[in-house]
Design a binder for these strands. Structure first.
Lengths: 117, 117
DNA sequence: TCGATATTTTTAGGATTATTGAAATATGGA
DNA sequence: TCCATATTTCAATAATCCTAAAAATATCGA
């Protein structure tokens, strides 16, 4: 992931509603969620969720596909994964020990940590 | 790391100069860097670097300590590590496969990846 | 203490961003 | 085709953020 993309991704994730939406989309999995369902789950208006979904899409963190009447949004796993790698690579450059606590817990097979709501 | 902190951290990292400063501080290691040196290395004015260092400090990503005439800034390793964990835990919740590519490369001992400028 | 240096705070502006409701668009079924 | 549904676009306002310049503050050496 390039710096430009990372900057966009960070900006996208720095907004409460968008962060919530990303979580919802990730939890929805590859099947994704229609915009209306996202709006309801996030507790915001339809036009507002549309605005934030567009922002997430432009930042490369989500993608849209039409399915019948609904437009279904999906989290871009590669982008999220790439952002994590960016943090590890570019920000911890020369000091891998910074990332060790994170990778250590992630690399263990203790998946309880991952299921925290 | 709580959501509030993560939102602040994302906002702090979504600005080009601040992202550059974080890189500089990380590379500087535990010894840190005085504000003036950061300004010079980042190629920005003293007042501008002061502003951004304050933002980073308030976001918990850096800390300041006075050393003689200079105020030396240090990257907060725990915060960076915590942010990576936050992404893995809260954003990849229920879908650890998202993080796998990231953790896989991070967990290998191939440190060439980490030294990219 | 005084002056020089380093850093911070303040201030003000201009530029983005968030939010809402109304209007417009696109889809599928009767 | 026409209607109902789902979503987006538009317009306006409020809020927030970024930046640069000037003023204020803190430290050290003479």
């Amino acid at each position: 992931m390039e710096e430009r993309q990372a900057l966009s991704a960070f900006a996208a994730l720095s907004q409460e509603t968008r962060l919530r939406i990303v979580r919802l989309l990730v939890q929805a999995g590859p099947a994704g969620m229609p915009a209306g369902a996202v709006a309801e789950a996030a507790g915001v208006s339809a036009s507002n969720v549309s605005f934030h979904l567009k922002e997430l899409t432009q930042a490369g963190l989500a993608s849209a596909k039409r399915e019948a009447r609904s437009i279904v949004y999906t989290a871009d796993y590669d982008a999220l994964s790439g952002l994590i790698q960016f943090l590890m690579r570019d920000c911890c450059a020369g000091h891998p020990d910074i990332c060790m606590p994170a990778t250590a817990s992630a690399c263990t097979s203790d998946s309880k940590e991952l299921s925290r709501a």
